[in-house]
């Protein structure tokens, strides 16, 4: 079943087309990796999916319905959660308060929201830090807080924007475990990632873009051996060699 369909998505900033006619689908239950060199339009694609930016042309369908005219908060209510590459913690709130605030997306009562929040914090291994202010967390904790907040909104589809960037090797393994755990709990994941160890291990399929355009799609092995992808990452000589 197609959970998310991105159809001919184009986003222009003035004359610059940051995303140009990109199409892909995310099947229910899978992990789709979105890769591409710096500035290729991955984060812009995310920002278009949750309507942070209004799209220039094309359409985005979630569960078969167009969401391209909705507001960001409505998209979250429909079941798309996201994390930010540049983390945006609610700095002067505790970790528990951060997650409780987003749990109100599905539960009305304060008691219910706190229950959801504690459950999610335990799931993300943040429970021991629940009373710390979000601004006092190290980067690994902040990245996990991003995920916890998104999870507390009970998404069907989770957009992860470079969750593993800037983590040390042991944090990296924890992050991979967490992502696999989330998939096992039934959440579909669309992930942008630069770290190949992460994206190649966990993705079912990979969609590669460069200069805002699709250059390849397939299983991790297919994409890794695709000449266009190698060229985009390493230069022309490697692609030929």
């Amino acid at each position: 079943m197609k959970l998310l369909e991105v159809k001919n998505l184009t986003k222009a900033f003035g004359g610059l087309k940051a995303v140009n006619n990109v199409s892909f689908t995310v099947e229910k239950g899978e992990i789709l990796g979105l890769i591409g060199p710096n500035g290729s339009g991955k984060t812009t694609t995310f920002n278009c999916i949750n309507q942070f930016y209004p799209i220039t042309s094309g359409d985005i369908l979630f569960k078969g319905k167009s969401i391209s005219a909705l507001k960001t908060y409505e998209i979250c209510k429909l079941g798309i959660g996201r994390t930010f590459q540049v983390v945006k913690p609610l700095a002067r709130m505790t970790v528990l308060e951060n997650v409780t605030a987003s749990a109100f997306c599905r539960v009305a009562s304060i008691k219910g929201a706190k229950e959801v929040a504690s459950e999610v914090l335990q799931f993300c291994n943040l429970w021991k830090d629940k009373d710390k202010l979000a601004k006092s967390l190290p980067i690994g904790g902040r990245k996990r807080l991003e995920i916890a907040r998104a999870l507390a909104t009970r998404p069907d589809l989770l957009l992860l924007d470079e969750t593993a960037a800037g983590l040390n090797p042991s944090e990296l393994d924890e992050a991979i475990d967490l992502i696999i755990k989330m998939r096992e709990s039934g959440i579909t994941i669309l992930i942008v990632e630069h770290i190949m160890k992460v994206i190649m291990t966990i993705s079912d399929r990979i969609h590669a873009i460069n200069f805002g355009q699709t250059i390849a799609e397939g299983t991790p092995e297919q994409v890794a051996n695709n000449p266009a992808v190698i060229e985009a990452y390493l230069g022309e000589e490697y692609a030929q060699g």
Partner: peptide, 25 residues
């Protein structure tokens, strides 16, 4: 103490994050 309170403070701390967490800012 209520949901409103959590929402108000979330908006103060980061309006963009609040919006993407399902809060009609």
């Amino acid at each position: 103490q209520s949901k409103w309170g959590y929402y108000f403070v979330s908006i103060r701390e980061n309006q963009d994050a609040a919006e993407s967490l399902g809060i009609n800012t």
